[in-house]
Design a binder for these strands. Sequence first.
DNA 1: TATGAAATAATATAGTT
DNA 2: AACTATATTATTTCATA
Lengths: 153, 153
Amino acid sequence: MPLDEFDRGIISSLQEDARMPVAAIADRVALSPTPVSRRIKRLEDDGIIRGYAPVLDPRKLGFELDAYVLINLAAHSDDNIERFESAIQANPYVIACHAVTGDMDYLVHVIARDVEHLSEITLKSLVRIPGVRDVKSIIVLETIKEKRALPLD
Amino acid sequence: MPLDEFDRGIISSLQEDARMPVAAIADRVALSPTPVSRRIKRLEDDGIIRGYAPVLDPRKLGFELDAYVLINLAAHSDDNIERFESAIQANPYVIACHAVTGDMDYLVHVIARDVEHLSEITLKSLVRIPGVRDVKSIIVLETIKEKRALPLD
DNA sequence: TATGAAATAATATAGTT
DNA sequence: AACTATATTATTTCATA
């Protein structure tokens, strides 16, 4: 069940390019294509690899702004939590949301076309979710790093 | 240059599954495989699709913890900024980092194996970067949403 | 300039040892 | 796990709108 050197090499290759041909991965990890193909299938079946996604350029799709919105609920009733979380799920501009420690309850990652759009998402969608008390926006000025690859050590 | 309905359908299909066969995408968008294949290549060449990545399960790879670390620099000298940013680039447990508005200068997304590991990353790596003044950790208790798909409207 | 149909090439998977 | 054979998938060619 734990990953061996081959599995790590395979995952690492896929993190570089998830469309890398099995034969190329096989060369890198010094194995033939067959076991590489089978190992990839096993990693998928085990849920270690959940799927594959394109890495898109948000700017080229019209999303110039990026913000992290910290949100506090007025009361942590089941009702408030459920309403909040389903509003979050339904909002296409929320690309990630976590319940967090600290002063605030949630950290919400939002993408927006421009400042007005961000303002609209925050003021018209997020603050209007019933039960939301306080909202603080942290606007991204510059992205220093965004490799979402996981270390395999 | 702007995307048409076909391009959006193609990107949307790839966001569901970046390994979806061209023929299947062709069916969905009511086109033959040939133009779908060419459009994907064009989207890649234009940098709209930057690449492809596996979606991994961090827990199954031993990363149980997730934190956002807010960092302040003592002074915003070029030296401090450069040292900080290269330390961030070199740290494999930093999966994202943004320069942000507000009280703090940077928002750093960190993954860790456990609490000790997070503590080690924060106290031994991040706070020790020369020029770092203040560090506040926001620990992720629960991930409510993590679809990183972009809207295409 | 972009498409569709057919042919070819590339790639992945399954069977066998 | 490798080798070989087969199946799937992607791409190129070419004719056409």
